[in-house]
């Protein structure tokens, strides 16, 4: 059985380490905050200028001056700090953020990522995605394995890139892949997903961790 969105978020949360500073993208990555393992502390960074992002406010306690990068109302924590956009991206570009978890339209076997633009459609903009993938120490992609039946893990991205060779780990509803100098490696399969099925739904070349074979 393929992983649900919550399962994928839980798997991504296993990449968190005690003391990490983490930026979560919009969509499934946002769910990761629900699965932070007990016994560790992480600080969530919101690129509009906040570290130590708290949960959504209780009804009636929303503050228009307190939003995350998805423009959602949030709350602060005892650890919270605020800063301007230049400092926010200074900490991102400067490699001070440990982990970025974001969504993708396409990922290539060499780690190229496309997630901001489909030519011919109205383009909304890249926001902070290009800065995040270029600057954050480790980039984890959380996405559905296919889109309308078409593979999203490719030999080469066909859409305009967000970053070149930037992805370290891909978690889909079918499995988990690492990407490194030696190319793409399948390291986990979702329950009851066969190697044959994942091969059929993946265009990218990949090898398997021995234990999986």
């Amino acid at each position: 059985m393929a992983w649900s969105r919550d399962d994928m978020a839980r798997r991504a949360a296993a990449e968190l380490e005690d003391g990490f500073y983490v930026n979560l993208g919009i969509g499934i990555p946002t769910l990761v905050s629900n699965f932070i393992p007990s016994g560790i502390t992480v600080q969530l960074q919101s690129e509009n200028g906040m570290l130590g992002m708290g949960p959504f406010p209780f009804e009636g306690e929303e503050d228009a001056d307190l939003i995350n990068a998805g423009k959602q109302t949030i709350t602060e924590l005892p650890t919270t700090s605020y800063f301007d956009s230049a400092q926010s991206f200074g900490m991102i570009r400067g490699g001070h953020v440990d982990l970025s978890i974001l969504g993708a339209m396409q990922v290539a076997e060499n780690g190229d990522l496309a997630n901001w633009m489909i030519p011919g459609r109205m383009v909304k903009g890249m926001g902070g995605a290009m800065d995040l993938v270029a600057g954050v120490k480790r980039v984890v992609v959380l996405m559905e394995h296919t889109a309308r039946g078409e593979p999203k893990l490719l030999h080469r991205c066909t859409l305009p890139l967000t970053g070149q060779g930037v992805v370290d780990l891909v978690i889909t509803d079918l499995g988990v892949f690492t990407i490194g100098r030696e190319g793409m490696t399948l390291i986990e399969l979702a329950p009851a997903i066969t190697l044959e099925e994942i091969r059929q739904k993946t265009e990218a070349s990949f090898t398997m961790r021995a234990a999986l074979g």
């Binding site: 956009s85 902070g128 290009m130 800065d131």
Partner: peptide
Amino acid sequence: EFNPQGTLAERIR
């Protein structure tokens, strides 16, 4: 003209 958000902030800074 699209600028990556951090590039935009740094261009202004």
